[in-house]
Amino acid sequence: MTNITVKICTGTTCYVMGASQLLSLPQLLPEGLASRVLVEGANCLDFCKNGQHGKAPFVQVNNTVIPEATIEKVKEAIRQAAETD
């Protein structure tokens, strides 16, 4: 079982659009998953630059980009990543 990397963007755009609330993610992960997930804050991931990835705030779960991220959307992506592993 590999680890799942979650990058929460704290670049200016993502922060202004609500990233700070996403940073509470680690406390909200179910126990079974928490140990496998590595959550890190990141500088601007460049997804905000050309509109091609949707709207901020962005979170990246392994290689999947989540636009307009919410805690629930991120949790769902983590669950999927855990299942396909």
Binding site: T10, T12, Y15, V16, C44
Partner: peptide, 11 residues
């Protein structure tokens, strides 16, 4: 909003 519009990365 101004910082975002001016593309200033605070970090």
């Amino acid at each position: 909003a101004m910082l975002v519009a001016a593309e200033i990365e605070i970090n």
